[in-house]
Structure formats: C-alpha cells, structure tokens
Amino acid sequence: MTSLHLNRRDWLKLAAAAGTSALAPSLARAQAWPAKPIRLVVPFAPGGSSEIVARSTAAELTKLLGVSVFVENKPGGAGNIAMGEVARADDNHTLILGHIGTLAVNPYIFPKLPYDPNKDFRAISLLSKVPSLYVVHPDLPARNLKEFVALAKGKPGKLNYGSAGNGSAGHLAFEYLKATTGTFITHVPYRGSGPQITDLLSGRLDAAAVGAPAILQFIKTGKVRCIATGTTQRIPQLPDVPTVAEQGYPGFEMTQWYGLLAPATLPPPAAARLAEMTIKAVRSPSSTERMSADAALVVGSSPEEFARFIAQEQQRWKPIVARAAIKPD
C-alpha cells in the first residue's frame, strides 16, 4: 500500500510552508478531481453483501463528489480478474471494492496473482463489517448449532454447505466453523452469492455461512433457519439466535468486511479527497440506516487505519488457509 495519505488540511499546510509554488498544481488537481463519472468495480456476482455495501456507498459518494459513481459487477476467478484489471487502470476514475478474500486470503491460496494487494492499490477506507450468519435449510433437523454439529458428526461428509466460491468469505467462515467444531462437511463452491442462495432456498444445499445483508430477509420469512451468528454478541435483528461462542465455542468470531481501494497511481490529493468523502458517505444517516437495517456495521476508517487492518487480516488468515488446505478452483 502507498504510505502517503494526506488530507486536504495537510496539503494546505505544506503549500503554505513551500510558498504554494510547488504544490499549487497538486492542489488544483485535487479540487478538479473527479472530472468524470467514477466506476466502482465489485469483483463478485450481484446478489450478495458486496452489492448492498457497494451500492449504498456509491449512492452517497455521487451526492458528495458531484459526479455519478456507478457500480459494475465483474465476477470471476475469486475476485482476481477484477482486481487485476483495476490494478492496471490508469484513468484515475476507477475504484474497486476490497474484500477479505481478495486482500487477505487469495495471496495464500493462489500461487500467482494478477495483482499485488500490498503494492498495486491505495487503501481509501474500510467501509463495513458484515456479520457471518450460519444458516440451514428448514428441512434439516437442526434447530441450533449443537444439533447441527451432532448431525454432521453422525454423517461425516454427507451434509454439504455452499459458498460464493473457493476463498470467498462464506467458504472461510464455514471452514473456520468446521475446524472449531471438528466436523467434516462437504463444500460446494458457486460463482457468486446469488446462485448459492438460490440453491440453499430450494433445498439443494443443506447449509451456508452468508453475510447478514444478503440472507437476513430469508431468515425473517422462514425460508432458511439461522442456527448461529459469527459475531461476539447477538445482533439486534436476531435477538433470539445465539452466537457460536455462546453455544460452546468461546472466542469464536467471524465477520466479513469490505473496503474501498484505488489503484496506487491515483494522485495523493485525489486520494485524500476521496477518503474524506468516503468517510462522510458511509457515516451519513441514510447510508447508516440502509446498512444497519441489514445488520451491516458501518466503519468509515482513515486510509492508514484501513492499510493496518488489511495487514492484520493477512496475518490472521494465512495460518487458517494453510490448515484448511484451501485451494483455488
């Protein structure tokens, strides 16, 4: 990640100290940016938590920046295709939704990536953390995690769970649960959350770990049953559903997260303005209301905080990926 992250006040101070002569062009470029609509690439298929977070943020950024910020879904390759494309973008008006998988997991499951998560991008802001909810089809005779674990242990490999793909947040969440509970449950990877949820609702899948925004509506209507949350505390939307930790596995925590990234070539003044507007966007009352309704936790961090968070997550997931022997498709 580029280490230089200056906000507008910093640039003004530096300009004053230098007599404004050297930095005046940079300041002018910062004020002029953006000069055209901004493309926000989501490296996954429509229908998942990423879609909700991205569109909510884009709507608010459109108001604050004065240009259209439009979302473009570009799934494939566990997010690698889109990440590689945006890493090479040089128009200064292309952004990407960063994710636990593309930033903290893919570097350890793919022998070669078309991007370097630590050099090719500039961290802008951690947008949101999304609770992972462990759900089953209503026909499965398991009303809580204890019953589900007993069922899985009684039929090793017979139960299955779906995910949005190898290395996806749902894949990681369920492998983490399997390792914690000592169960063997067959993984069925899909190409995106939408197809996975469709098969879960139809009963072709027994279980899944899904981000709250994408699955909450189906839990409330009884189309799937939530047997546990991956949060440290129960979520307000499902007050009667205990956490994994409450059900016999202390210390367990699993949340997905999403952040905004720009190519490393985005000039620091433009990146500083984007970071400032992004924090305002995700913390705005309308964005907070939209995301909170879907149990997504609004963050809105500084670029430095987001860069540190990515580094911490990489260290966290490296041994978990190795232990679960997660391999790409």
Rank of each mutant, 00 (worst) to 15 (best):
N7S: 07
R8A: 15
L12P: 00
K13Y: 09
A17Q: 13
T20P: 02
L23C: 01
S26L: 13
L27V: 11
L27D: 13
R29T: 05
A30G: 15
A35N: 14
P37K: 00
I38S: 12
I38V: 15
R39Y: 09
S49F: 01
S49G: 13
I52R: 04
I52M: 12
V53I: 14
S56P: 00
A58T: 09
K63W: 06
K63L: 12
L64F: 06
S68H: 06
F70K: 10
V71T: 10
E72P: 02
K74M: 13
A78Q: 06
A78M: 09
A82Y: 04
T94N: 06
V105N: 05
Y108I: 05
F110P: 00
P111M: 01
P114N: 10
P117Q: 08
P117Y: 10
D120C: 09
L126A: 00
S128K: 02
K129S: 07
V130L: 03
A142K: 03
R143S: 14
N144E: 12
N144Y: 04
L145I: 07
V149A: 07
L151K: 00
K153N: 14
K153V: 08
G170F: 07
G170R: 08
F174D: 08
T180H: 08
T183I: 09
T186A: 12
Y190N: 07
G194M: 08
L201Q: 10
S202R: 14
L205S: 08
L205E: 06
V210E: 15
G211M: 01
L216A: 01
F218C: 07
I219H: 05
I219V: 13
C226Q: 10
I227G: 01
A228Y: 00
T232C: 11
R234C: 07
P236I: 09
Q237E: 15
D240I: 02
A245Q: 08
E246L: 03
E246H: 02
G248K: 04
G248Q: 12
G248F: 02
P250Y: 06
M254V: 11
T255S: 12
Q256N: 14
Y258V: 04
G259V: 02
L260R: 05
A262L: 03
P263Q: 03
P263K: 01
P263M: 07
P267C: 05
A270N: 10
A271D: 11
A272R: 03
R273F: 08
E276D: 15
I279Q: 15
R283C: 04
S284N: 04
P285V: 04
S286Q: 12
T288F: 08
M291V: 06
V299W: 03
E305Q: 12
F309Y: 14
I310H: 03
I310K: 02
I310Y: 02
A311W: 08
E313M: 12
R316P: 00
R316S: 07
W317R: 06
K318M: 11
I320M: 11
I326L: 11
P328K: 05
D329C: 09
D329F: 12
